[in-house]
Amino acid sequence: MSIIRTEELCKNFGDLQVLQNVNLTVNSGEVVVIIGPSGAGKSTLLRSLNTLETITSGKIFIEDNLFCRAEQGVIKEEMSKEDKKAALLDMGMVFQRFNLFPNMTVKENVMAGPVHVKKTPKEEAEKRALELLEKVGLADKADAYPSRLSGGQQQRVAIARALAMQPKIMLFDEPTSALDPELVGEVLNVMKDLAAQGMTMLCVTHEMGFAREVADKVVFMADGQILEEGTPEEIFNHPKTAKAQQFLSSVL
């Protein structure tokens, strides 16, 4: 079963066509890694999936149900409000710049969604938050404010915050790009653990080692289009398009 599928997804910013007929499928349990040069539309694709951007045309399916269909910048069809809300909660998102809430402690950040959105009782949410922090190796920072943490630690909290909503898929938008090189590993390790536990993941990253090791499928994007997709072996060792060859030779 696919968790997310797009059909002929297009997104324009004014006259700029940022996504052109993107057909992407992420199946349950899969780790899909999107690579591609800057400006390819990778972030925009992720942000279109969870409605941070509104799509210009095309269809998005969540678990094979039509999530929304747009034509010429107008939403023509979409799920009922409740279904849409539930579907959005099934998508966790991790941002390049963490975006933790600085006015809340680490634990409060992780509890915020369960307590205020899912109306989970506080004690239960707290217990669960501490478990998640344990999982990302930050149990001892539960009561610290985000500003006291390193970038790598902040990003791990951000992952815990997203996981607290028990999503069916995690979207990662260059989760390690804002980190000092020595902090990248700790975040990738958390992501590898997640993948090993069967979490469905859609990651934009420039960490080719991670992609090779963890991805079930690698998608190469350039100029708003998916130019190639395949196993890491296929994409990294036998890229077909000139653009992918050129991109890979510049990053590997």
Binding site: T51, N99, P102, A112, M165
Partner: peptide, 27 residues
């Protein structure tokens, strides 16, 4: 307040009013 704060709140399902009350106004 950074736009990312609104986006992060939205991705964990907060309503606009909750985002204001819990995240934006305190900051």
């Amino acid at each position: 307040i950074d736009k990312g704060q609104f986006e992060a709140a939205k991705t964990i399902g907060m309503s606009g009013a909750q985002t204001m009350r819990l995240v934006i106004i305190p900051q």
